[in-house]
Each structure stands twice: as structure tokens, then as C-alpha cells.
Design a binder for these strands. Structure first.
Lengths: 354, 354
DNA sequence: TACCGAATAGAAAGCGCTTGCTACGGCTGT
DNA sequence: ACAGCCGTAGCAAGCGCTTTCTATTCGGTA
């Protein structure tokens, strides 16, 4: 059988209570005793039984990080940053200060799976949960989320949003870090308008997502402000946040509206697809059509031409979310912080040729 | 306080044992009783206490997926695929058949963190562990890993390797899915040689990693076979699997050896950096220098020119690993399967101009 | 010398669940 | 009509740890 606390206690000739205290370091233990215990732990290769410990202490060292798409670096970067703040020093011993098990859960953007994961984490009595990326705007789902989060918060789980707007009518959320998607999108479109573009296609993300809506709103604000707001629906196409969507939508857009001289994509991945479509149509970037993305993922600077986009400090935001989840950082006033987005002007956008 | 099994039992006017059996569905319960219990569960919004359950049953529903870099789609794709096989139907109820909590743990390529995570998972009595990506070849670390995995296996944890060669001298591993890195690399270089390249630069991954070594060996096999094996060290540069490494190494390579007409990169991300370097040097791809990658990540087809690379069926392998971890698929004979790699000839490679 | 409090260790009562075993009707078979 | 079963449900003993409360020791002080 596996080694238990009692085995260690027997070998160290102390009581189980003492071993527990040595391991948790939350109670004075004479250093000679401590050493004896630690040697026994080593000798027996003892590993704490997590479930038993969590049960008795009514807490666990699990921290969940929910992401919409783990294969998308957008989430990977945030999750990795958060995890590095949570995971502890990682000295290999598996012991040591505040060692938490930071785990990322992939919802695939499905609301059901999001709730399932929250339930699973609730079951494990998770110490904290970080929710990344945009949320679904379906009222029923929002209500279900609010209820679930309230119960989690009740049970002492810390809840942090990262790159997600705060949920209305709930105080369950410890802190929310929201990206300024609207502002970033507005500045991006202003940049395009400033270059002389008048007819701009927009390849939007999936419907009913906060990220999609905010970016689209920022875009339209800029269009309106420039007096260019017309039949926007004609030059807007919705689709998932992937390469194929960008390709198909752009083909469609350019077929539908020949005067389009610029295409704004929901994010960089979509923009890559858009670029491919533009090229396959025999058009040049940026001479014939400008293309812009969003997020400034690492590959964007290597696109040819380099992609004009809006930089989101994903790593910094993820790290901060991790610290908030650990209680290592005090939440921003009101629990909400808006994270600035920075326009990155690069080669994929230029004045229209005509 | 939170609702317990006993509360549910009281409300349904049955014993806790019966509630447990209804919830686990592993013991006959009259359907009228079952319904009463389920209603009580619903009414009270009961959520099982995971730690208590794991303690009593000596098993847990945690499955860990270890990755080297969560921000890299290479791992994201495998992890996502595995998770989708493990996560269950995801009906939102948080209950239902074989619901497991599949979580991904980011080691950042650090051997210490790898061991730490294994300990943490061992602590949680994880049902299974999937290790993805190449392993470190340091003997001390390998021994530590073998020991740790043996203990995990002892405790009933299923262990699956995905994209990682089997560990010598251990039978702890349930199944190992190894990519044919060597064969893929060989075919890639043969392709280059076939095009007429004679002097080929190689931007390798970090030292002491199985993936790095196997790909490099495949490359050199092809060079030797063509009688082109000379002072390979002169045209090989090692570095991490990232864009910056590819950029710097390529600059260095092309400065050092002017006759190099092709650069093979350790993976697609590195290749992207290599492309940028080639261009910044004022050279054209593929006319002046051919560039090739490895993995065929989604963005590779959108590079300009499209990247010649070696396709690894990451999604399929990840999914299979997930099924193996769940015991839904029988391990391959000998516990080892080699996954074929397919050469993808695209625009970034061509015959040298001269 | 006798007493007190600090420092340290142990005893034991759970934490909430699972599960082997027992109990109890109502059927079937003879 | 009675023994033996099958189908259900309950009892109760843990699972391995944490933590409160109690016991012991020891140095210092009056």
C-alpha cells in the first residue's frame, strides 16, 4: 500500500499530528523533531494524500483556469502567465510555500462545458478560478453563470476574470480585468480612415460574445464619427475565431463589395485567413486591400507584410489574474480594471491605391 | 454551510448510502427511490464533495495533461484533443457518465516543474496522466521521472505518453505514442537535397531534448546518405523553440556560411523567425534561400510563401492519448506506437537559383 | 523551593463520502 | 406451507488527514 502519515509518524517516533504540523509548517515544532520527521518523509518517499487533506482542512490547492480554446495562443499566453504566478516556485520537491496545482480547462467556447467545469471545480473545492476571454451574452447562460459563481464564492473560492467584462448583478467576482476592446477597435479603424479608406469590410467573431460585440462597436463608433456609417451589415460577416472563417468571409466580402479597400478582422488568426483570401483573389496587400487584425499574437509580426493590429498585453494580464487569484495582489478599486489596448501600425495597412 | 450527502438523504428520506449509490449508479436502486433522491439533489443544489469522495473511494476523477509550453499551439492542439476525449459529454449538469476533470499543466519545459506537477497529481490520486512533447535526456532527470512514474502507476494512475518516446527500463507507462521525428526530418532533407541543395543550415531546438535529437539525426542521416555530410557543426545552431531563436540563428548561419541555400528549422515557429531573418538580409524565399519547418501548425500554410514542413497529426494523436488515458482504447502492442509524419511540400522551398 | 507560563507533543474527534455486510420483504420452487 | 432467493435499503466502519484541546516539560521568577 501507499505510505500514510501514520507510517511516517511511526518511523519518526512522533504522533501523526506532529507530522502534519511539520508538513504544513503552521505550528511550532522543535527543529530536532522537524528534522527527524523530514528524514522519515524522505526515507519513505511519502506523498501527502490530497483528498484526505482537503477533506479535513476543507480547502484544496487546486486553481482552475478556464479558457475558450487551448489551441489558440491568445488563451495559451494568458493561461501560461497565470499558471506561472500560481504554480509556486516549482522546486521539484512538490512541497514548499503555497504550492498550488494550477490547471487549465478547455471549454471550447461551449457554455455547457463552461458550467460543467465550474461544477467540477466546485466539487474539488477549488481555491480559485480564473475565467479568461470573452463571455457568451445569452441571458440564460449569464444567469446560470452568476448563480454558479455565487455558490463558488460562497464556498470560499476566489474568482477572477481575465479579459472578460464583469458580470452584471453579482459580487461573487473578486476582480475583473477587462480589455479595452472597444477603444482598441476604434483606434484601429480611425487609423484606417486616416489612411483614406472609406469602405471597410469587417470580419467579426461569433455572435453573442462580448469580445465580438465590443470590437464591432468600437469599429462602428469610428465609422460613425467619420460620417462613414452606412449599410454596415453589408460589409460585416460573422464567423468563428479561426483562419478558415477569415478566408471565407473575406472572399465573400470582396465579391459582394468591390469598393472595399480594407478588411478588419476579429483577431489575428482570422486576419491571416483574410490575407490568404486577398492574395488568392490576385490582390496585393496593402496596395489593393489593407488588412488588420487584433491581439498582436507572436506570429503577427512575421506575417508578410507584417500585420497591423491592436496589441493586448496578454501575458501581463494573465500574470496579474494569477496573482489576484492567489490573493498576492489587491483587487483594483471596484474590482474592475480596464486594460489598455495599443495600436500597432505595420505593413499590412496603407493608403488605398486609387 | 454547504449541503452534504446527509442533507440530501434526509430530504429524500433515505440513508446516505442510498444517495451515494444513486449518484454513482453502481448499485441497484428502485427507480421510485432514485427519483426521490434526484429531486432532493436538485432541490438542494447539492454538489458532491470531491475530496471526501476521492478519499473514501481511493480514486479521483482528475486527469492531468502535462505540456511543455501552453502558449505553443503544438501543445495546445494535442491537449485540446486529449481533453475533449476525457472531459466527457459535457452536458452542463456536472454529472453523468465518466465525467472526469481533464486539466492541463504547463511545465514550461522545466524538468523541476514537470516533477512538481507529477507529485501534485500523485497527491490528488489522479486517475491518469498524459505527458506530451519531447523529454529531457538528462539521465538524472530520466531516472527521477521513471521513479515517479513507477509510483504513480503503482497507485493505479494510468500513464500515457503523447509525442514522446518511451522511457527505457520502465513498464509504468501504459502506452507511448511517439512521433516519427527522425523519419519526417529525413524525408524533409531528402526533399531539399532532391531540389539540388548541397549546403543546408539547421536551426535546431534546445540540447538534450529527444525531439531535437531525433529531428537532427533524421536530417543528418539524409545528408550522409547523399554524401553531403561534412562539418555539420558549422551549419547547426541550437536554440529554444521560439521565433527569436529562429531569427537570430539564421542571421548567424547566413553570415557564417554564404553558400547555405536552405535553412531547416526545428519547428514551424522557428521557421517563421528564420524567414524573417532571410528577408531582413535582403534575400528572397525560396529563390535565394529555401526555408522549411516542422509540425505543420495551422499558421504555416498562411506564411508567405507557404511553409514547406512536416505534418504531425497532433489532433489525432492527442485524441488517441486521451482515449488511452480513459481506458477507452486498448494500448498498441508493446505499448508503443509510432505516428507517421508526412512531408508537406509548399512554396518556401525550391531549387537553388544558381 | 514552589509556582507559572511558554513551548512542544499527543489524543481523539471529526471532515463527507463509499462499501461490505446485514436485514427485510415478497417470490418462486417443491 | 416453508425454505431459499432476489431485489433493495440501511448500518457502520473506515479512507488519511487536520485541529482543538489537553498533557508534559522546562526555564525563570518570587
Amino acid at each position: 500500500m501507499t505510505v500514510t502519515l501514520a507510517d511516517v509518524a511511526a518511523r519518526a517516533r512522533v504522533s501523526p499530528a506532529t507530522v502534519s504540523r511539520v508538513l504544513n509548517g503552521n505550528y511550532p515544532v522543535a527543529s530536532s523533531t522537524r528534522e527527524r520527521v523530514l528524514r522519515a518523509v524522505d526515507d519513505l518517499d511519502y506523498v501527502l494524500n490530497g483528498p484526505a487533506s482537503s477533506l479535513a482542512a476543507a480547502t484544496s490547492d487546486l486553481v482552475g483556469i478556464l479558457v475558450n480554446d487551448i489551441a489558440d495562443p491568445f488563451f495559451g499566453i494568458m493561461a501560461g502567465a497565470a499558471q506561472s504566478e500560481i504554480g509556486g516556485p516549482g522546486d521539484g520537491s512538490g512541497r514548499g510555500g503555497g504550492e498550488k496545482l494550477a490547471v487549465v480547462c478547455n471549454t471550447g467556447g461551449s457554455p455547457e462545458r463552461e458550467l460543467t467545469y465550474l461544477t467540477l471545480l466546485q466539487r474539488q473545492r477549488a481555491a480559485a478560478v480564473v475565467l479568461t476571454g470573452g463571455a457568451l451574452e445569452d441571458p440564460a447562460h449569464q444567469a446560470a453563470m452568476a448563480a454558479k459563481l455565487a455558490r463558488l464564492a460562497d464556498a470560499g473560492t476566489r474568482i477572477v476574470f481575465c479579459g472578460r467584462p464583469p458580470l452584471p448583478d453579482t459580487d461573487a467576482v473578486t476582480a475583473a480585468l477587462a480589455f479595452d476592446n472597444r477603444g482598441g477597435a476604434r483606434r484601429l479603424t480611425e487609423h484606417l480612415i486616416g489612411l483614406g479608406h472609406r469602405r471597410i469590410g469587417y470580419v467579426a467573431g461569433p455572435l453573442e460574445r462580448t469580445t465580438t460585440r465590443h470590437r464591432l462597436e468600437g469599429h462602428r463608433e469610428a465609422m460613425k464619427a467619420a460620417g462613414l456609417y452606412g449599410d454596415e451589415e453589408r460589409v460585416t460577416v460573422h464567423g468563428p475565431y479561426d483562419r478558415g472563417s477569415g478566408y471565407d468571409a473575406t472572399l465573400e466580402l470582396l465579391r459582394r463589395e468591390r469598393e472595399v479597400t480594407a478588411v478588419v478582422a476579429a483577431n489575428d488568426t482570422v486576419a491571416l485567413g483574410a490575407c490568404a483570401a486577398v492574395r488568392d483573389l490576385g490582390l496585393r496587400i496593402p496596395e489593393d486591400v489593407s488588412v488588420a487584425g487584433f491581439d498582436d499574437l507572436p506570429f503577427s509580426v512575421d506575417a508578410v507584410p507584417a500585420l497591423t493590429t491592436v496589441r493586448l498585453p496578454l501575458f501581463e494580464a494573465g500574470a496579474r489574474a494569477g496573482r489576484l487569484a492567489m490573493g498576492k495582489e489587491t483587487p483594483p478599486p471596484g474590482g474592475i480594471a480596464t486594460i489598455a489596448a495599443e495600436l500597432m501600425e505595420r505593413g499590412s495597412t496603407a493608403a488605398p491605391a486609387r
